[in-house]
Simulated assay, not measured.
Amino acid sequence: MAIHEVEFKSFNEIETVKGWIYTPIREPIGVVQIVHGYGEHSRRYLHMILTLNEAGFVVAADDHVGHGKTAYDSDNWSNWGDKGYMTMAEDEQKLRELIKEDYGDLPYFMFGHSMGSMIARLYATKYGEELDGLILCGTSEIFPEMENIVSELKAEIDAGNGEQVDPDYQNRMFEWMTERIENPNTPNDWISKDPDIVADHANDPFNNFTSVPNIQSLYQFAQMIQQILGTEWSEKVPTDIPIYNIAGDEDPVGRYGEGVYAVSNWLLETGHQVKTKLYSGYRHEIHNHREIRDEVVAGIIDFITEHARVKAN
């Protein structure tokens, strides 16, 4: 495996996004672009990246504005810019353009986890022609209280407070995630039943759950969620993109499976090809849980290998 560091100017015209392209040692058969979630960074997917490389896939990933190495280098964890909710999706297209320079003829797949799945779903509405397959992991339907939070955030922005940081809004967005967990040890126990994974997440200097995005940035995050609801969203996604929708059935982000199936049903109602798989007894980060991560990645590889082969033929 070879690792190539890349960087490019963000769509927000403020940040320089840091990214990486991981290449296999043999002739590649396709490309997978990994889109990470809220409050984390792309190198938390190294197990998946290495396994995909071994299977013959080039892997590309970046750290979003306000996240990971991008934020670490600029010391800007709070401000995602003022260019709107498509900023991160547009940055993924910029990374895609870099990939095209060397691997433009290969089948191309996007994997998005959590907020990354929201970004991928937005990406598919504008750049769906770029995709040969889409993998959604830990995706969402709607968060409780989101309409009220959106209205309050918009009022704050209209009052000129968009660049202020108020942890209360982020707390309200996420505090309900542990409601079904008996005696949670931390507010982030919804991530995984494995305490080592939760601790690793908390101790990672490139994660930023403690560095709260400003009001304008949280408003963009909330708008992402609002823009990917119902058949109004799925009818904008090209119907020839095969989609693999996976999650844990104890994941609150996907409303314990109900929200995951809602997303798949929207897609089915608008004529899409969707395969849905829930992992029983697991929470949000199924791709990191040591008991099942090999099985999860194997399922992803089976999906993308099948559709890479279809394109090649």
Results as ranks from 00 to 15, higher is better:
residue 143 F to W: 01
residue 132 D to A: 06
residue 208 N to R: 14
residue 181 I to Q: 11
residue 158 D to A: 01
residue 125 T to D: 09
residue 107 P to V: 09
residue 180 R to Q: 12
residue 206 F to N: 07
residue 176 W to T: 03
residue 200 D to G: 13
residue 125 T to M: 14
residue 157 I to G: 02
residue 117 S to V: 11
residue 180 R to A: 12
residue 109 F to S: 09
residue 210 T to K: 07
residue 127 Y to E: 03
residue 209 F to D: 09
residue 109 F to N: 09
residue 156 E to W: 04
residue 162 G to V: 00
residue 115 M to K: 14
residue 131 L to Y: 09
residue 136 L to N: 05
residue 195 P to M: 07
residue 110 M to D: 15
residue 137 C to G: 04
residue 123 Y to T: 10
residue 135 I to H: 01
residue 193 K to M: 11
residue 150 V to Q: 01
residue 108 Y to D: 11
residue 167 P to Y: 04
residue 177 M to S: 06
residue 188 N to D: 05
residue 110 M to F: 08
residue 193 K to N: 09
residue 131 L to P: 09
residue 203 N to D: 11
residue 196 D to A: 12
residue 149 I to V: 00
residue 108 Y to S: 07
residue 201 H to W: 10
residue 171 N to W: 08
residue 209 F to Q: 10
residue 139 T to M: 02
residue 172 R to D: 05
residue 178 T to R: 06
residue 175 E to G: 13
residue 177 M to C: 10
residue 185 N to F: 06
residue 196 D to E: 11
residue 160 G to S: 00
residue 118 M to N: 13
residue 134 L to Q: 06
residue 119 I to V: 12
residue 126 K to A: 13
residue 206 F to S: 15
residue 139 T to W: 02
residue 191 I to D: 05
residue 194 D to M: 12
residue 140 S to R: 04
residue 161 N to C: 02
residue 175 E to C: 10
residue 114 S to G: 15
residue 161 N to I: 02
residue 203 N to R: 13
residue 183 N to A: 07
residue 137 C to I: 01
residue 202 A to Q: 13
residue 165 V to D: 02
residue 163 E to F: 04
residue 180 R to T: 11
residue 127 Y to M: 06
residue 194 D to I: 10
residue 143 F to T: 01
residue 107 P to C: 08
residue 116 G to T: 08
residue 189 D to S: 06
residue 205 P to S: 13
residue 112 G to V: 03
residue 122 L to S: 08
residue 143 F to G: 02
